Amino acid sequence: MRTSHADRSARTRTALLESAARGLSRYGYGNLVLDQVAKDAGYTRGALYHQFKDKQDLVLAVWEWVIDTWRAEVEEFVGQESEPVAALLTLARGHALFCRRDVARMAIALRVEFSGQDHPVGDVVERSYALLTDTCRLLIEAGRDNGSIPPGPPVDVLASAYIGALEGTVIALAGRAPHDELLAARVAAGVLGLTHDPRTEAPQ
């Protein structure tokens, strides 16, 4: 069965987005070379420019694709948890699994690179971080309210620490499955002040 032009174009676009995401994770925005992105995806520079008008257009599309994929593979399962601690640990484990795509450093690289700048890429990255922080803050508040998360630092501070610790862990443990998933959950539990949770133990 022959594939349609639309199907081929969609496959090309996805391959280029995945390649660019890996490149951003490794090199950041300024050092991302579009020729290399196309080559690593198995396409020509012309194919890339047929899909995207320039680097900024490509990176904005990459960010949208990464966020949409993260929501489908991580956030959806977080939302299925009825308890806030379970949701936060599910987020930690899911994020570790998601970052096995070799995109673990992409978000933090872009955030640091565009810090303090007025730039479309930096702006969309900061908006995404704000939404994630707010999600974590609400879950921590709910955990404090039901007694599953102990008192401690202000909720907004704890939410930022949770995200920072999780990012640092998955970056440091990139390529070290299955320890990345387990230790991401343990780090998250530690930041939240949980003394012991069976969901952070290795399977027997």
Rank of each mutant, 00 (worst) to 15 (best):
V157P: 00
V157M: 09
V157G: 00
L158W: 00
L158M: 08
L158A: 02
L158H: 00
L158P: 00
L158Y: 00
L158D: 00
L158R: 00
L158K: 02
A159F: 07
A159T: 08
A159S: 13
A159E: 02
S160H: 14
S160V: 03
S160A: 15
S160L: 12
S160G: 11
S160C: 05
A161Y: 07
Y162L: 13
I163N: 08
I163K: 10
I163W: 03
I163E: 02
G164P: 09
G164A: 07
A165R: 03
L166G: 07
L166N: 00
L166R: 00
L166I: 06
E167W: 11
E167L: 14
E167T: 13
G168I: 03
G168E: 01
G168Q: 04
G168A: 11
T169H: 02
T169E: 02
T169P: 03
T169R: 00
T169N: 06
V170E: 04
V170K: 05
V170Q: 09
V170S: 09
V170I: 12
I171N: 03
I171P: 01
I171D: 00
I171T: 02
A172C: 07
A172T: 10
A172S: 14
A172E: 12
A172Q: 10
A172R: 12
L173V: 04
L173Q: 02
L173R: 01
A174W: 08
A174Y: 06
A174K: 12
A174M: 11
A174L: 11
A174R: 14
G175C: 13
G175M: 09
G175A: 11
G175R: 05
G175K: 06
G175V: 08
R176V: 13
R176E: 12
R176G: 03
R176W: 08
R176S: 10
A177Q: 13
A177I: 10
A177V: 14
A177H: 07
P178V: 10
P178E: 05
P178W: 03
P178L: 06
H179T: 14
H179Y: 15
H179N: 10
D180G: 00
D180R: 06
D180V: 15
D180Y: 01
D180N: 13
D180T: 12
D180M: 12
L182A: 14
L182S: 07
L182Y: 11
L182G: 09
L182W: 13
L183K: 03
L183I: 15
L183H: 04
L183S: 08
A184M: 08
A184K: 01
A184Y: 01
A185R: 10
A185D: 01
A185G: 13
A185T: 05
R186H: 13
R186V: 15
R186K: 15
R186D: 12
R186C: 15
V187P: 05
V187E: 06
V187W: 04
V187R: 01
V187S: 06
A188T: 05
A188Y: 00
A188N: 02
A189I: 12
A189H: 06
A189G: 15
G190H: 07
G190Y: 03
G190N: 14
G190T: 13
G190C: 06
V191D: 01
V191A: 09
V191G: 04
L192H: 05
L192C: 09
L192N: 05
L192P: 05
L192W: 03
G193C: 10
L194P: 05
L194I: 15
L194E: 09
L194H: 13
L194T: 12
